[in-house]
Design a protein around this nucleic acid. Structure first.
Lengths: 354, 354
DNA sequence: CTGAAAGCGCTTACAG
DNA sequence: CTGAAAGCGCTTACAG
């Protein structure tokens, strides 16, 4: 392993000068700089990040805490973060977090507590006060992308408002028998993504003087996956008598499952059942799913930009900044309603049926 | 930040002793050990991995190189690796690799070349000789999970044999008009996953004296995604005259796209068209897809076990080991054919049509 | 603009 | 069984 002393010797300078030349910090004459850089290239020198970290206290590594990798939103966000970090010469260390339990504690108390990451980004996880504290207490910034993060900056779409909009779309089409396939665990954290979307649904219904319709009082919780949506929709649509004419699903994956359930039950979409999802999944277009589009890949990029700023790195500029150069954490991330063929006005038949 | 010297002082011992007590290496009396451990707990001491790495040369960090995160196989494998690494007290640093280009080179020449990881696992990527050399030249083990990895250990299913089996299943049902939706890029690396599956398809067809049937000579390349499969299947199934009665798709995601295309074209599955996939995707059961099941999550676990052994770590024991304690890299990973409702004998009508 | 020296926080021979 | 010392490979004041 070649060390910086080898470079220095070859270039005929001291280690200090070699270090300055290579890092670009401190004064070095252009001539020596060039000589050092050349020497380094000659022997294939690459600085040891450990040694540098030890003295600078910076690791150029960001920890990402994420509950799933294999769900669309999370995978996209992760890829967005990874690419952005890489181009900023940062590493991404992945912590695939279980919902709770000793494994989760170990991530915070051991892995993240060590001096191995400069900051952490938590994606779609509801952090406890303690978890936030243990990171911040060690002087590291933590930011949340979706999920909740008491006392720390949070980047998120307006889940409640967007869910309300999705529901209003259904109401606007003339539906009055509307159900919600909620994300499982809406009760756990009040500001969790699932809970906010459910609240947005409730907002719209209340405003329109409507009550949810369907089995289980028109609200069934589903695991946020296609099979989860399938199972829940089967339950929701079981009884013909209580069947809704429209569903707002808390995620596109749930919505796809609901579409599959409708097919299984012989209910045409949108003829007999309108479905609106949430996410803008890459399959949504192909399946004609009306949805609230969000942009997790861009969100990942944006979260990294924010963290870079918190770390005092001057990267390329992200979009919306407050005067202090930080992103505006209060401004919700972009979403938009995309209407496709899975939603339409309720059929006369179903209107009569009611 | 508390350092080991604080622990030592509090416990009334030297740094050396504190280090030995905490790491478990070297002799320490039980009494002092306990005192040190307690002192460490008292002040919340956590060792700096950087400092330790610097002297031991070990980082307890594994680099994972992976082209996608958001495709089922890759996501599963990644989660499997992450969990296993975590329980061995290792970190996982993620390199989401582009297919080629300067970004890719930078991962190998800079990120992976530094002393930041002890080993690398490449998932589903076709590595060049140079890429393998740059890692191994720095004394780090590299292993491939799927993909190709010249001169390095490789863990993989028998893609060719399994693809052959899938095709034989179709032939066995009586199909004679069979097409293949191949993974894009079958030409690039001869031992790539897509190329091997395509070769297995060809093996079975040749043996049965059959030629592929369908547009583009019965073999259409598809991006390994649902939309990719959809587009390719539309092309393949376009002309009624040349339409196959069965398709072997190089992945389940392609197969799902083909099912969707069949639906669009009014072809019932399996009535008018049998489809067999490859992967054992978590949605396969719900959609009744016949497939070659593989177990990427277990594969990820297994790859980590192998790396741990190469690094001389003694972990819990993985399955099949050669006498030297290393996994048997020549033995293919497990697969099995799962027959579901997407495949059946060709209908009389289609037999007649021919 | 450059170099000598100290030090980041550990671990590891080496004496004792 | 324990401690003093050296050193891993860098960077950073500090002199010059």
């Amino acid at each position: 392993m070649t060390a910086i002393s080898d470079v220095a010797r070859l270039a005929g300078v001291s280690k200090s000068t070699a270090s300055r030349a290579l890092s670009g910090r401190g004064y070095v004459s252009e001539a020596t700089r060039r000589r050092v850089v050349e020497a380094a290239a000659d022997i294939g020198y690459i600085a040891s990040p450990n040694a540098a970290s030890l003295v600078t206290g910076r690791t150029k590594n960001v920890g990402v805490v994420i509950p799933f990798v294999n769900r669309w939103f999370f995978g996209e966000a992760l890829e967005g973060m990874e690419r952005t970090l890489l181009s900023a010469n940062y590493d991404l260390t992945l912590y695939n977090l279980a919902i709770a339990g000793p494994e989760r504690d170990r991530v915070f108390d051991f892995f993240l507590a060590r001096k191995r990451v400069d900051a952490v980004i938590a994606v779609g996880v509801d952090l406890t006060d303690r978890e936030v504290e243990v990171i911040q207490g060690r002087g590291k910034p933590i930011i949340a992308l979706g999920g909740t993060c008491p006392g720390a900056p949070r980047l998120a779409v307006d889940d409640r408002g967007a869910a309300r909009l999705a529901t209003e779309h259904l109401i606007d089409l003339g539906h009055e028998r509307i159900a919600h396939l909620a994300g499982a665990g809406t009760g756990s954290a009040a500001r969790s993504v699932q809970a906010l979307r459910r609240a947005g649904f409730a907002d719209a219904m209340r405003e329109a003087d409507l009550s949810p319709v369907g089995e289980s009082d028109g609200i069934v919780e589903a695991e946020m996956t296609l099979p989860g949506g399938y199972v829940a929709a089967l339950q929701l649509l079981g009884h013909p008598a209580t069947r809704p004419t429209a569903i707002f699903a808390a995620s596109d994956e749930i919505a796809f499952g609901a579409m599959r359930a409708a097919e299984r039950l012989g209910l045409s979409v949108p003829g007999a059942l309108s479905i609106v999802g949430f996410d803008g999944h890459e399959h949504a277009e192909l399946f004609g799913l009306t949805t609230i589009e969000q942009f997790p890949r861009a969100q990942g990029r944006y979260a990294v930009d924010a963290v870079m700023r918190l770390l005092g790195e001057t990267t390329g500029d992200a979009d919306p900044l407050t005067p202090d150069g930080l992103p505006d954490f209060d401004r919700p991330l972009e979403t938009r309603l995309i209407v496709r063929s899975s939603t339409t006005a309720p059929s006369t038949k179903s209107l009569v049926a009611r």
